[in-house]
Amino acid sequence: MRITHKILCRIFTNHSWKCVATFLCIAMCCVSASALLSSCISNAPLVDTAIATPTTTTAPPWFNSEKTALFLWIVFIGAAVTVSVWLAKSGRPIRIRRIAALEAVDNAVGRATEMGRSILFVPGIQDMDNIQTVAGLTMLGRVAKTAAEYDATIEVPTCRSLVMEAARDTVRASYLSAGRADGFSADRITYITDDQFGYVAHVVGSMVREKPATCFYMGCFFAESLIFAETGNAIGAIQIAGTAESSQLPFFVAACDYTLIGEEFFAASAYLSGEPAQLGTLRGQDVGKFAVVVLIAWGVLASTILVIAPSTVVVGWFLYVLQKVLGG
């Protein structure tokens, strides 16, 4: 097992990474081309699929041709991320714009040490099957490492048993990698209750009593966002929040010092790590975004021309974009 791992790690970390990435890209392109081809054959004139009668040939059991576009998108994003990571690893400098909220993390942790108070980290109120919780925990890993280096205590009340266990593993390893294994105490990472407002009652109660110097809210939040943020504000804590729940963003924006909005939240862990490979994934995200912008512009243009002068070619283009590239 160890040998296999070593080989794979070597592939992922050394120069042979380039070969693997190239191979992956070629493989992905081949697969997507064949998938596209098969979908083209199965419902031949591309443009007229909407009115064409469904063909009687059944889809191959190994691939759902209705999801070709989705598959291509994932392959595209995967390839964009892979190539960006490859470029980053091969030493090409990556410039990432400043994200104020993340620049503030070190200071916020340092402030807690100076004041001799604790740091509160709330990893959201959802379970491990929510990707925001996973993103929150990766962020916890970074914050806990900084806290271990600064010798600050970090309290993590959790709303789910599994999150508690995962958070304990994460923080333990962070202390270990910071060389302060002795500073770790599992008792600071506790399970409170699965109930949303039971959890809130406890967390705000202990906030008022223990007055943490810094509060992090990173994960999936619902109504409790403002209760936390206002209580934190009342006790004068520095507050940094991050969530992808767009309904809660206004409250964090209004009541916290710094807020990571949507995508920034997912980028946080990579940004803080400073590792080229991780920063490379951010570039990959940007490539995806650029593609979306171009597609939207294309679609808008096509549909506008369609309204002004309905010409067959443009109709064809427009339908092609919608049906094939966006699966609409």
């Binding site: 808008v300 506008t304 699966g327």
Partner: peptide
Amino acid sequence: VESDLMAQAAATMKPLV
């Protein structure tokens, strides 16, 4: 990618006129 990226991008392709 399916419900947020593709669906939302497709919904934005509106004619300007």
